[in-house]
C-alpha cells in the first residue's frame, strides 16, 4: 500500500488547486479509528488571493481489502446528504477517487479536534455522572435522524428501498456477505437467518436515512457530554430506522459488560429516548426482528475481518483482534435474542 506522506499530500493539493500557493501539509498522524478504513489527521497551510489559511483535516483512505463493502464516494455523499439537516457531522472538503494518487480513493473532511470519541472512556468512574446526558444525546440524535424526511435528502446515490422491502433487502445483503467472506460454518447465525425469513417484520413505519453504525464510539462528544458530531457513515443507506436503534443496543457493544447498552444506558431507557425524539414507536416484535438481523450483520462483519486478514499482503491487527474478540460474543447475543441462552 502506498505510504501517505506530508510531501505527497502537499504536492497533490498544490496540483489539485492551482490557485493555492505555499501549500504545506504537516503533523500527519494515523489515527486508531475503525477497522474498515485508514484514517489520518494533518494540518494544512496555504495562501491564495484571500490571504493565508490554516486548516485541520481528516483523510480517510479505502484499503485494498476491508471488512465493510463500501467506498469513499458512498461515505462522502452520505455526509453531504445529511449535512445541514439537524444531525451534526463534519464538513466534507474533497473526494479523490483516482487510486493513482494515494494507492486508494481518499476523502478529506474538517477535523473537529479537542473532543472525545472513545467508548471506553465512558466506562471510567469520572464519566459515570455524565452517562445520562450521553444517553440522551446519543439516542435523541439517532431519533432525530429517523425523523428527517427522506424526500428532503439527496439519497440518489443509495440503493432504492421501500418500507415493505427494506428488511429482507438488508437480510439478503448481510447473508450474502456471510457467504462471500466464509470463514467456517455458522450454525447459530444460519438458524437465526432461517427464523428471520420465517418471521418477517411488518413494513417499516417510514423510510429513513439509516446511519448503519450509530453506536458509542462513532460520535464525538465534549467534556460536558454534548454530542458534537456523528462519524463513520460508510454503511449509511435508506431503510427502517429501527435498524439503527437495534444496532446501537447490540450486546457486543455493551462496553460496560453489564445491562447498559453501548455501556451507556439500559435498553428500556434507550428505546424511550429514541421514541420521544423520532416520534416513532419501537414495536417490540419488529425491534426484536431487527436486533436479530443485526446479529447477522455483526457476524458478517466480524467474519469479513477474519477474511480480510487472511487475504491481504499486509494485514492489520484490528481485523484479527475483532474476529477473535467478537465472533463468539455475537453468537451468544443471538442465542439470547432467540431465547436459547
Amino acid at each position: 500500500m502506498k505510504t501517505i506522506t506530508e510531501d505527497l499530500l502537499s504536492s497533490y493539493l498544490a496540483a489539485r488547486f492551482p490557485d493555492w500557493r505555499e501549500v504545506s501539509a504537516s503533523n500527519l498522524e494515523r489515527l486508531p479509528l475503525g477497522a474498515s478504513r485508514e484514517t489520518f489527521r494533518f494540518d494544512l497551510a496555504y495562501a491564495d488571493s484571500a490571504g493565508e489559511h490554516r486548516d485541520r483535516l481528516i483523510l480517510r483512505r479505502d484499503p485494498p481489502a476491508s471488512n465493510v463493502d463500501s467506498d469513499r464516494r458512498h461515505e462522502y455523499e452520505s455526509y453531504r446528504a445529511i449535512h445541514g439537516h439537524g444531525i451534526p457531522v463534519p464538513r466534507m472538503i474533497l473526494l479523490e477517487e483516482d487510486a493513482e494518487h494515494f494507492g486508494g480513493a481518499i476523502s478529506l473532511a474538517e477535523d473537529l479536534r479537542g473532543y472525545h470519541n472513545s467508548e471506553y472512556q465512558l466506562q471510567e468512574p469520572a464519566w459515570a455522572d455524565r452517562l445520562p446526558r450521553i444517553a440522551d444525546e446519543l439516542w435523541s440524535t439517532m431519533g432525530s435522524l429517523a425523523a428527517v424526511p427522506c424526500e428532503n435528502l439527496d439519497l440518489s446515490f443509495m440503493k432504492p428501498a421501500t418500507p415493505e422491502t427494506t428488511a429482507m433487502q438488508e437480510l439478503d445483503y448481510w447473508e450474502g456477505q456471510m457467504d462471500a467472506n466464509d470463514v467456517g460454518p455458522e450454525p447459530v447465525i444460519r438458524a437465526v437467518i432461517r427464523w428471520l425469513r420465517r418471521n418477517p417484520p411488518p413494513p417499516a413505519q417510514k423510510l429513513a436515512m439509516v446511519h448503519g453504525d450509530f453506536r458509542a464510539g462513532n460520535f464525538l462528544y465534549d467534556d460536558d457530554a454534548k454530542l458534537i458530531a456523528v462519524l463513520d457513515w460508510e454503511m449509511a443507506h435508506m431503510g427502517d430506522p429501527l435498524e439503527d436503534l437495534a444496532w446501537s443496543m447490540a450486546r457486543v457493544f455493551s462496553f460496560g459488560k453489564d445491562e447498559r447498552r453501548g455501556g451507556v444506558a439500559p435498553r428500556e431507557e434507550a428505546i424511550r429516548i429514541w421514541e420521544q425524539a423520532s416520534g416513532l414507536t419501537a414495536d417490540p416484535d419488529a425491534l426484536r426482528w431487527w436486533e436479530l438481523a443485526m446479529c447477522v450483520k455483526g457476524q458478517a462483519i466480524w467474519n469479513s475481518c477474519a477474511h480480510a486478514w487472511s487475504t491481504v499482503d499486509d494485514p492489520t491487527v484490528i481485523h484479527a483482534y475483532a474476529a477473535w474478540w467478537l465472533r463468539n460474543a455475537q453468537d451468544r447475543a443471538a442465542l439470547e435474542l432467540m431465547g436459547k441462552l
Binding site: 450454525p187 447459530v188 438458524a191 450486546r251 457486543v252 457493544f253 455493551s254 462496553f255 459488560k257 477473535w324 474478540w325 467478537l326 463468539n328 460474543a329 453468537d331 451468544r332 447475543a333 442465542l335 439470547e336 432467540m338 436459547k340 441462552l341
Partner: peptide, 20 residues
Amino acid sequence: EIWAFLRGTVESRRVASANF
C-alpha cells in the same frame, strides 16, 4: 437438543474480555 448443544459450545468458547 440442537439448541442446547449450540448453547453449550458457545458458552465453552466465551472470551474472558468479551463484552457479552
